[in-house]
Amino acid sequence: MRSFLRLLSAERLKLAKSRFRWLLPASPLLAAVVGLLSNPPAGAPPRVEFAVVLSGMSFLHAMLLLPILTGILASVVCRYEHAGGGWKLLLSMPVTRPQLYAAKYALIALHLAAVQALFGALAAAVFYVRGFEGPLPWDMLLQSAAGGWIASLPLAALQLGVSLAWSSFAAPLAVNVVFTLPNILIVNSADVGPYYPWAQPLLAMVPRDGETFGALGLPLESLTVTVLGSFIVFLAGGLLYFQRKDI
């Protein structure tokens, strides 16, 4: 555990000075703009009104930008190793491959958590700025932000695996976009939506008491199975591959 934490802090140092971190707040900020401009149906109770606003914020963020950001992060954490022959340097040090894999994965997950926390905070700000009545619906916000985080973890595992395998920076991103774009159609399908890993962040982020169509508003259980299943498959696949890879 100690050596894992040391690795994590070394990884953090490499990323701390990277320009990529400026990409992180982009999507939540864009979502906040959407939240400020959207028009909730008049006359509904404030909680439902806010749910509609939150859905609007989630759409752009979780359908496209969050999955793509996950891929970018995975590419970024591997970038410096691919560019400078760093795999040899790292792996000829006293660290095991699963430790290194875990450190890279943890770094992606932590950054995604920060993005989702910012999203939650900005959604709360939208709630106050637009002057919704009543108390802030904490449960709804928390479920949306945390749900989006958890649902993006399997994608992070897959993208980390792909990024480890390909030394190119752009190729893993292309894979990511190719799988993310169909989201636009798939979230409308109640048949495919629940089983498509790339659609899960959006399905998890849209408030349960908002609108219901297509795959939206499905019971949490079906999401859990897809997210957990794909997480195990993608993580195990990436780890097995990395363990056997010739450096």
Binding site: S3, R6, L7, S9, A10, L13, K14, K17, S18, Y80, A83, G84, G85, G86, K88, L89, L90, S92, M93, P94, V95
Partner: peptide, 27 residues
């Protein structure tokens, strides 16, 4: 200690920061 083929480094970091990243792993 090893140096295989060409030197590995993180170009955006200074010499000290490069060594610090390795120092954190080696403790």
């Amino acid at each position: 200690g090893s140096l295989v083929e060409y030197p590995s480094y993180y170009g955006h970091l200074t010499a000290v920061e490069n060594l610090e990243a390795i120092r954190r792993i080696l403790d």
